[in-house]
Write a protein that binds this DNA or RNA. Structure first.
Length: 772
RNA sequence: GCCGAGAUGGCGGAAUGGUAUACGCUCAGGUCUCAAAAACCUGUGGGAGCAAUCCCGUGAGGGUUCGAUCCCCUCUCUCGGCACCA
């Protein structure tokens, strides 16, 4: 009988969408399981294989947990603010709102086709005013708590996208989105003090069960360094030069000082032509040029001398751009004998190198005693530039009043809705398109009632995705982010499935916002961290082994594969390709193997369904083994081996013509169900099961069926395999030894020496150790 | 440079101290067919041999062990992340 996937998908697909069995029930007495899959940005090109892969993995887990009696929440939504939509809107002259609607509908249809068991009642959309009201509310709280302020600063500016970028969004000096080289611009920007939470973010990792690489990525990003700030006096001046160092013990080895070209001391030295020239050149250099590795260091002597607070030696102060103004104090004490960079600089400019001293751990005490410095901590983590000069984002809910300065829009006036505009184009001046809508900008100060102006910047993409998992707990709440009791029931997220690319930024921002909300007392006190486990899925490469890209033409469209092979084959194949977290190349041919397998499975069920009343003993063993193995594998996301086990069982049953009664056939179908939901439902129905197999109880294996009467042991002589014996699993050493020694081949090898030791491992091996 | 992951047949990959290569692909042979495709069955790490069988074999080298893909040390390479961060 042919496998008509189109008919089966049509028949059951309609019933799956909106099926009550997939809905999460608040406060139900069953244990809860919150399975969170990163929500996508709904781009115009539709769902890609990466989405399909990750979501299938999450879906299998959610289905398995449901069948195991958990009240599962498996929601989905849209991270829909973003540049591509804005760009498309500009190009086509349409409203971003309507493009977003089109795209989300398309995504939703594709997800439903793939059979994902999302609870659509909890759908969220970051561009929905009912949602971004709370994104804005969070910002007003950050402002009230002194964690958000406006600052004039040099930012990374992308001349193509006309947008300010956070440091994290600049890769090798280029815009993360479009690859254009970024420029420096001075703009007044909202900055969020994530650094105030650096220690908490580091500490909190201990309460999570993230995989090692995720923890490492977060720790590295924060990169906490403990050292000392030391003040050096400047000769013939009242000024002091403060440096940060992790090696105060090398203070005696300091032979020169280096300050960044942007350092405040430099401003007074610009009369010196050489200094002026160097500083201007450094300013012109892009981030990329300055950060270029292996590049020869450059610098200029400032004319100043600092005095070593301990040795009292005079040492020259240099200006060089290998020292960054944004880290530490923007100045360093150079110890060429202990630092490669300092050494390279010293040898280029023929500066002295002191090799005749020994680093001294007591130096720190001396520094503190003399009052010239103290312990200090520095982080690589920088504060978070929160402003974007764009239309398609959450308006930052702030107004500027001549009397009161910056004032947050009060809760009852939220959301600050995005106004309809004629043009979405960003401006070259660096102002948001919102700035041109005078009637929107002109407003009233919430504090004094006087005239005031609205902030026209919008929030970065991350803002909406920081807290969406809270909203799923209570998506329609108009009075709070989400109801406290509902959050208390559903949180924390048990498994968060997503891509490696979000292991640093998104995860860190999201944890930070959660910790901030925790401090506000608006999320449950019991849970200091939002996510228990972070699972990062792998990457599917094109058939040529390269990353999928439109320009290369190696993109696999899940819809097209499903047209040819069916959804069940697509899902099962993706999970069978390799370990769930590995990087794997697409292989069209391997799809065929999965197709054959699902057909074979179906044939087996069809052929045995009315034939056997009782299952044979070996049939029982195969089935119970299967149930045990697949359950264990799914719980550990080892989907590739789970599928291999089902294949093995089907081969075994078919080849050895084992008999299966209906009960065991139903068990097999249940085990297949999370992977191939449509064909499983069909077979379930053929066997007389009631809709739906997906809410049926996961089968239980019984130990008594797992034990076999005979096991095969390896017989080793000096650790080398020389034969096998079949014995009872409970056989004694004497028995096994006797049976083994009866074998001609074993006798032959035993004759080569004298047995000095026998090692017997029950159920596994017997090893005869001979004299040399 | 630092951090993380890894290296197993022709290919994707299994095996967490006990029969290396499960499962799938590929390929070869067979069944069915007028024929082909599909499907199904059998075989498929390398070498020697008619065969029984033997030797070699999990990136390289060493170690621990009766026994190592697995544990320890040294090295090489690949992938991912971070990086003039003092």
């Amino acid at each position: 009988m042919a496998y008509d996937f189109k008919e089966i998908e049509k028949k059951w697909g309609g019933k799956f969408v909106g099926f009550a069995g997939f809905k999460a029930q608040d406060f139900e007495s069953k244990p809860k399981k919150y399975v969170l899959q990163e929500f996508p940005y709904p781009s115009g090109s539709g769902l890609h294989v990466g989405h399909a892969f990750s979501m299938t993995g999450a879906d299998i887990y959610a289905r398995y947990m449901r069948m195991n009696g958990f009240n599962v929440m498996f929601p989905m939504g849209w991270d829909a603010f973003g540049l591509p939509t804005e760009n498309y809107a500009i190009k086509m002259g349409v409203k971003p709102q309507s493009i977003t609607k089109e795209n989300t509908e398309k995504y939703k249809a594709q997800m439903n086709r793939l059979g994902f068991s999302f609870d659509w009642d909890r759908e969220v959309d970051t561009t929905d005013p009912g949602y971004y009201k709370w994104t804005q509310w969070i910002f007003t709280k950050l402002f009230e708590k002194g964690l958000a302020h406006k600052e004039e600063m040099a930012i990374n500016w992308c001349p193509k996208d006309k947008i300010g970028l956070a440091n994290e969004e600049v890769i090798d000096g280029r815009c993360e989105r479009c690859g254009t080289e970024t420029e420096r611009r001075i703009i007044s920007q909202w900055v969020v003090k994530i650094t105030a939470y650096a220690d908490r973010l580091l500490e909190g990792l201990k309460d999570t069960n993230f995989i090692e690489k995720v923890k490492a990525a977060q720790t590295n990003w924060i990169d906490k360094k403990i050292g000392a700030n030391i003040r050096f006096e400047i000769k013939d001046s009242e000024e002091k030069l403060e440096v940060f160092t992790t090696r105060p013990d090398t203070l005696e080895g300091v032979t020169f000082m280096v300050i960044a070209p942007e350092h405040k001391l430099v401003k007074e030295l610009l009369e010196n032509e050489e200094v002026k020239k160097y500083v201007n050149e450094a300013k012109k250099k892009s981030e990329m040029e300055r950060a270029e590795l292996g590049k020869e260091k450059t610098g200029v002597f400032s004319g100043l001398y600092a005095i070593n607070p301990v040795t009292k030696k005079e040492i020259p102060v240099w200006i060089a751009d290998y020292v960054l103004v944004s880290y530490g104090t923007g100045a360093i004490m150079a110890v060429p004998s202990h630092d490669e960079r300092d050494e390279a600089f010293a040898s280029k400019y023929s500066l002295p190198i002191n090799r005749d001293y020994v680093p001294d751990m007591k130096m720190m005490d001396l520094i503190v005693e003399k009052g010239v410095g103290e312990e200090s901590v520095n982080y690589h983590l920088r504060d978070w530039i929160f402003s974007r000069q764009h239309y398609w984002g959450e308006p930052i809910p702030m107004v500027y009043c001549e009397n009161d300065g910056w004032v947050a829009v009060p809760e009852e006036q939220l959301p600050v809705r995005l106004p309809e505009v004629e043009k979405y184009q960003p401006t070259d001046t660096g102002e948001s398109p919102l700035a041109s809508i005078t009637e929107w900008v002109e407003t009233e100060c919430p504090k004094c009632g006087g005239s005031a102006k609205r902030e026209t910047d919008t929030m970065p993409n991350w803002a909406g995705s920081d807290w969406y998992f809270l909203r799923y707990c209570d998506p329609k709440n108009e009075d709070a982010l989400a109801d406290m009791e509902k959050m208390r029931y559903w949180l924390p997220v048990d498994v968060y499935m997503g891509g490696d690319e979000h292991n640093t930024l998104h995860l860190l921002y999201s944890r930070f916002i959660y910790q901030f909300l925790w401090d506000l007392g608006v999320v449950p006190k019991e849970y200091p961290e939002p996510y228990i486990k972070r699972m990062s899925h792998g990457v599917i490469l094109g058939a040529d082994g390269n990353r999928m890209s439109k320009s290369v033409g190696n993109v696999i469209i899940p819809d097209k594969v499903a047209d040819i092979y069916g959804t069940d084959v697509l899902r099962t194949y993706m999970m069978f390709m390799g370990p769930f977290d590995a990087t794997m190349a697409w292989n069209e041919r391997s799809l065929v193997g999965v197709k054959r397998f699902l057909e074979k499975f179906q044939r087996l069920v069809e052929e045995s369904k009315d034939k056997y009343v009782v299952t044979s003993a070996e049939g029982m063993r195969t089935i119970h083994h299967l149930v045990k193995g697949v359950g264990e594998d799914i719980a550990e996301f080892k989907y590739n081996t789970a599928i291999a086990k089902i294949m093995e069982a089907v081969n075994d049953l078919t080849k050895n013509k084992m008999e299966l009664a209906k009960t065991e056939l139903l068990m097999m179908v249940k085990v297949l169900a999370p992977f191939a939901p449509f064909v499983a439902e069909e077979l379930w129905s053929i066997l007389g099961g009631e809709f739906s197999v997906h809410v049926s109880e996961w089968p239980k294996f019984e130990e008594k069926y797992l034990v076999s009467e005979i096991v095969t042991l390896s017989v080793q002589i000096n650790g080398k395999l020389r034969g096998t014996v079949e014995v009872s699993p409970e056989a004694s050493e004497e028995e096994v030894k006797k049976v083994a020694e009866e074998q001609e081949k074993v006798q032959k090898y035993l004759a080569e020496g004298k047995v000095i030791k026998v090692i017997y491992v029950k159920g596994k091996t017997i090893n005869f150790v001979l004299t040399a």
